[in-house]
Design a protein around this nucleic acid. Structure first.
Lengths: 321, 321
DNA sequence: CACGGCTGTCGACAAAAGTCAAACCGAGCG
DNA sequence: CGCTCGGTTTGACTTTTGTCGACAGCCGTG
């Protein structure tokens, strides 16, 4: 009995407890183990996704503002977390909501593209476990040898681990020193395959990055602060999956963009559901650019950001009318 | 504050408790209500499907016998509930499992066909609540003015209620006295529309009925025991959605079948996922017939029944080989 | 306007679940 | 052969949760 009590017993305990509604001591008696063990098994069952507890995220879409935003920005769905004087900081709230929304959007057999960043890693970190063996999580861009714990491959792997899904990592650096080398690497069969597999995804998860000295690409050494400054003057408005975009949400025509290994924006746009999560208010500009470029269909933001987006879109919408 | 604490507060409480992992007293403090109220809200949240607790049914498909059955009978998925010396009776187990499987098979936007019977009603009765506004539950056959609480319309409605889905009832009797009247009624626009809408379903839930004096159609007075006996001699092997089928799973050519208002078997076969649940061992014959007729793609049965099916299919499979 | 009925709320208690240190058990190793 | 080590199991204890009866506000009604 001590050989492999794990799976089988955990399953049975979870089944009796959650599906049949038995008490822990009843389960213990039925399984002929102590109640303490049952409690432990149940915790494991929750941790491994054998049982799933999910809460409806409807509360956050019911907001009238969410509806208005959907209309104004032509998005499929918007979730807004209220920022009333809660004790907890709103950015955690946003991540928790994003994790729920993300899980809710996943279907069996899905292929999911994941980018990277602090926001994404936070989501991965608080996301509850699930048991989706037939799901694949693919990395959307090359890696950064960064001193961060939220490198692209880590984001992908952690999410795959949580979902009990297959993780497909990208074995290439995000940015190279010469355009030529990048071109060559992109032509490599392994890399090319991975890149072309991206448009086969039906769900993507990413955030947007800023284009100032605080940007991750700068912090990770992919660009210097002054190079970034120059790009900004040349029209850079945001960063998506390590790629610089302009205010229209198009890839900026610059050396940096030609030196990276990352999903083409056109591939991203082919993905049915593009979930964008933004925590920081400072990312307003980049977010507007991403939306303009059609890189977002599903959006999770805080109330303050939502209002700014609406104010921004409002006049434009009136102009059209 | 006493005006309508309902939805909004329940949602918030559920959110803080289940998604954020706060304790009930923390939630109470944040929402400025007593902990007792929080406990009550959480119960309501569970009851109304605002939070969903589901357990993986993998344990029951992992069975080697389940795999063999899938192969032998060409089914998409089989769940087998073990019948070891559990305290609980196995038929409840089957229903609990069937309810979980059923919920697991439902996707957003689905259209679900539901038949009737004791088994189906039991499933509806123990099924946990969910919050699927964009799902439609349609009744697969006409009604019986029966002294039972599991009339077709009740099965449909109860399931729709549990899922928070739209319920589409059939406003016609299951069986009429003359073929002519039945033909006329089927031609009625309302009825015809309902009937033709059945093949648009992508999930169906039904059981099978026996063709003896204990059959529901006999108990409900749709047929007398002697009429049934005659039909049985004429080749009747089972009942599906109030319709008599022969051993090949084809509709039996008989007056009774021409006098009923129910889904055509061909419409049922067009439904992508056909979940059949069988509790009683006595329904072996009818089940074999239903499977032979391609009326089943997903099956939930007890271990004893599974073994009989395998024994039955085994020789035939060998003969082919 | 007083009256039940209804619903939501609360405090207090009982029940259930979570947790921890200690015991246990088999496996591998010196 | 006896040892430690990693893991599981257990009983005892603490914390958390469920529930009950009582009370308070609101409503429609007589």
């Amino acid at each position: 009995m001590a050989i492999r009590p794990a799976e089988q017993l955990i399953h049975k305990a979870a089944w009796l407890y959650y599906a049949h509604g038995l008490r822990q001591d009843q389960v213990a008696r039925q399984l002929k183990i102590s109640r303490a063990s049952v409690a432990m098994y149940l915790r494991k069952a929750r941790e491994t996704g054998i049982v799933n507890i999910s809460t409806s995220t409807q509360l956050f879409t019911d907001d009238v503002m969410a509806r208005k935003l959907e209309d104004a920005l032509k998005l499929d769905a918007v979730w807004i977390v209220p920022e009333n004087g809660h004790v907890a900081d709103p950015s955690t709230d946003i991540a928790v909501l994003a994790a729920s929304v993300f899980l809710e959007l996943i279907k069996k057999g899905d292929r999911i593209g994941v980018a990277w960043g602090r926001t994404i890693y936070t989501i991965a970190d608080i996301m509850s476990y699930a048991d989706l063996q037939d799901v694949t999580v693919v990395q959307l861009c090359g890696n950064l040898g960064a001193p961060y714990s939220y490198r692209p491959d880590q984001c992908t792997m952690e999410i795959a681990r949580r979902l009990n899904a297959k993780g497909l990592n990208f074995y290439a650096p995000l940015v190279l020193t010469t355009e030529e080398l990048a071109r060559g690497l992109r032509a490599e069969p392994v890399i090319r395959e991975q890149l072309s597999g991206i448009s086969a995804c039906n769900l993507a998860l990413y955030s947007v990055g800023t284009v100032d000295a605080d940007s991750h690409v700068v912090k990770c050494g992919a660009l210097t602060a002054s190079e970034m400054e120059a790009l900004r003057r040349a029209g850079a408005a945001g960063v998506i999956a390590g790629q610089i975009i302009d205010a229209q949400g198009k890839a900026l025509d610059c050396s940096y963009n030609r030196r990276i290994i990352s999903a083409e924006l056109s591939s991203l746009r082919k993905i049915e559901k593009r979930l964008v999560v933004v925590q920081e208010d400072s990312k307003f500009g980049p977010l507007v650019a991403a939306i303009a470029g059609g890189l977002c269909t599903h959006l999770v933001v805080g109330a303050r950001m939502a209002r700014r987006l609406l104010d921004h879109a409002g006049p434009a919408a009136e102009k059209v009318a």
